Structures are given as C-alpha cells and as structure tokens.
Simulated scan of single mutants.
Amino acid sequence: MDYRLAIENAPDTVPGGTGILLVHPSTGETDRIDTDFLSTDTDHMLVISTRTTAREVRQKLEHYEVDEERATILDALSVERGYTRRQSENVKYVSAPDDLEGIVDETRVFLESTEGKRRVSLDSVTEMIYYSDAERAGEAVDAILELLDEHDAVGLFHLAKGVHDEAELEDFRSRFDGVVDLSADGSVTADF
C-alpha cells in the first residue's frame, strides 16, 4: 500500500512500513509538516506526544483542520505532571515520557485495532532520550518501526538537532527510510 506525502522535496508517495525522521531546530516550526503528514491520504492516525499534553495536541489538530475523528492521541506528559486526564476512545495516556514500553504497547494496540491507511506521528524522540537515554529511546523507536512495517503503516518521528551530538544524530538517521531536514529558515530538504 502506498501513502501520499505532502512534504516539500520528499517523494510523492512512500510504501507502507516507511519510517521518516523529521530533524528540526529545537525552536523549529514543525506543526505544518506534522499535520500535513497526518491528514494526507489517511484513515486513522496516532499522535504520540511526549512533549505536549493531549489538550495541546487537540488544539494543534483543530488549528490545522486535521480531521480529529480519525485521530487517537497518546499523551505521555499529563500523568507525570499531575494534570486532570480523562481517558476516552480517542485519548490514551502512559505514565511518563520514559514509559517507553507503554508507548510501544499503545502503538501496537492502535495498529492492531484499526484498518486502512494508518499514520503515526511521534513528537518527540528528543524528549524520550531526555527522560530515559539514547539507547532505550533507540530500542523503542526500532520497535515502533517494526510495528509500522508489520501493519503496513507509516510514521514521522521528530528529533531536535540542536540538543544531540553528531554521533547520536547519525545513529538515529540510520534507522529510518527517509530523513526530512527542516532548517531554521523554514526550508526543507529530504533524503530517501
């Protein structure tokens, strides 16, 4: 199954199972790329957020007119911060950004319980590394990439380039089928 991509300078389509790394400046405006990725050619989407709460994710989807009916949000922040949370069909929670097993499990549940074209956005790998470490975050990313492949889905994983050394950046780049690089001036390059 092929998926259309609405990412500047990237291929028009990618096959199911494709994992894409979005490398961006730590202050980079990734919302447009993320929401274009999610809303193009999609039946169901899982938005994994280790950086913002479900409420903030919902506001982003609303602002960019992404069909929220198709979205499941996995919030990894609210429990740890003590915010009120109401689990629903479309909003799931894990205990903290370092609950990597929980994040992988919820991704598996989402992919096993939905059909059609599925997209997963993970914002952000940087936070997973910050809360745990690069090795554990890398293992979780690999597990999610395997799930995408197994279920013919595609994923976009955010990584802030300013906070990782070159070796760490290269290690994560090498795990993905495609890398989209967002520069500080907003220009986009892609390598697939």
Results as ranks from 00 to 15, higher is better:
110 F>Y: 09
80 E>Y: 06
86 R>N: 13
83 Y>L: 10
43 D>F: 03
32 R>K: 08
16 G>I: 05
74 L>K: 00
34 D>V: 14
45 M>T: 09
49 S>W: 13
119 R>I: 10
88 S>E: 12
71 A>C: 13
35 T>Q: 07
102 G>E: 12
72 T>Y: 15
61 L>I: 06
83 Y>P: 00
69 E>F: 01
15 P>V: 02
104 V>D: 09
63 H>N: 14
89 E>H: 05
36 D>E: 14
44 H>T: 10
46 L>R: 04
36 D>R: 10
99 D>F: 01
48 I>A: 01
30 T>Q: 06
117 K>T: 10
45 M>C: 05
86 R>Q: 13
84 T>E: 13
73 I>V: 15
96 A>N: 11
35 T>W: 01
115 E>P: 03
101 E>D: 11
121 S>Y: 11
74 L>T: 06
94 V>T: 04
111 L>N: 04
57 V>H: 04
34 D>L: 09
52 T>K: 11
86 R>F: 13
122 L>T: 09
82 G>V: 15
19 G>E: 08
85 R>G: 11
23 V>A: 05
115 E>F: 02
22 L>R: 04
90 N>S: 15
23 V>I: 14
110 F>V: 03
94 V>H: 01
49 S>D: 06
29 E>P: 05
114 T>R: 15
49 S>L: 09
113 S>Y: 06
15 P>E: 15
27 T>K: 06
27 T>I: 12
33 I>Q: 03
124 S>P: 07
57 V>C: 05
68 E>N: 07
99 D>H: 05
71 A>Q: 11
91 V>F: 03
17 G>R: 08
82 G>R: 08
22 L>T: 07
97 P>C: 06
82 G>F: 13
124 S>C: 04
20 I>C: 01
25 P>N: 13
95 S>V: 13
32 R>I: 08
43 D>H: 06
25 P>Q: 09
109 V>I: 15
89 E>I: 00
